[in-house]
Write a protein that binds this DNA or RNA. Sequence first.
DNA 1: AAAGCGTGGGG
DNA 2: TCCCCAAGCTT
Length: 359
Amino acid sequence: MAYAGSGSTTAPVSRAHAWAGTPGDPNELGALHAAVIDWYRRHARVLPWRSADRTAWAVMVSEFMLQQTPVGRVLPVWEEWLRRWPSPADLAAEPSGEAVRAWGRLGYPRRALRLHAAAAAITERHGGRVPDDEADLLALPGVGAYTAAAIAAFAHGRRAVVLDTNIRRVFSRTLQGQALPRPSMTVAESRLARALLPADDADAAEWNVAVMELGALVCTARAPRCDDCPLAARCTWLAAGRPAADHRPPGQTWAGTTRQLRGAILAVVREATEPVDVAALLRTTTGPVDGPTAGSSGKPPVRYRRALAVLASLGHDDDRVRAALDGLAADGLVQLEDTDGVGARGRAGNGVRTVRLPD
DNA sequence: AAAGCGTGGGG
DNA sequence: TCCCCAAGCTT
């Protein structure tokens, strides 16, 4: 049944568990639900993993890809994955290296590896069907509290406490008057989210996706569009004059880091059809390693050349490159091999000469 | 439990 | 330009 805003579909909030800003009045809680869900029904983006004929697997793939990666970049890769691997068993039947290659430049490629491993686990332990139980989901590689709840809710329509960065931010502002949630999630937040969750399965699922969408489109981190917000009238943060955050997110360094080096190495190896000579990675200033050519120009794509430039600046340090290769190999993202292809696999010893994606 | 892990677009 | 950040997970 669709949410009717009757108030009877909402969970009563125990006074003992009331959190600062939590609506203690069931009518107010119902009004909150109605405001957000009504907004969602009018403004939600049309996304393929929300279509009526989506599969649970399709939702699961989207959730993995959307971990720290914007929707716009996920869309084309998601389409390709689902076309190529319509079920978990289809993916599990391929080498993990194919998952890494098909992941393209979405970032955090270990997610591809974990999704591949999760597909194998689903094929083995769950008869090829994506579990609907949160505990079962949580046991899968790459599935944490958020992803387990999201799959249970969005793929299976279950009532689950979905708490991502968007939802945390909306609650933080609306209910607590804080510009941003704390860096790490608190038990209190989890309790709050549970208290706000509609009692009915379908209502809860729609509430979750609606609040998330509000956070993604309106209640954004940088420049929130409060003029367009259905919660503006009841937002504690807006009423307080939108005070600045009292803390600053850590902020990640990038230039010159191992991460950048790993990314550059992977960019080269991902595009290579043959094993890449490690020695070539160490002398990219003088000669580009084997790589893709863009169309008729005969020149490698810009992105690829950028990776080569990174290698040129960091790759002169043999020890660093080998350390990065070791890290990638330890993560299962690449395989290191002797030139003759025998022995030394997974070890960057003296005999190691080539690197490629795993079998 | 803080830190590591990619990438590219927007303010 | 540079900085921030985008549906987190793992160790």
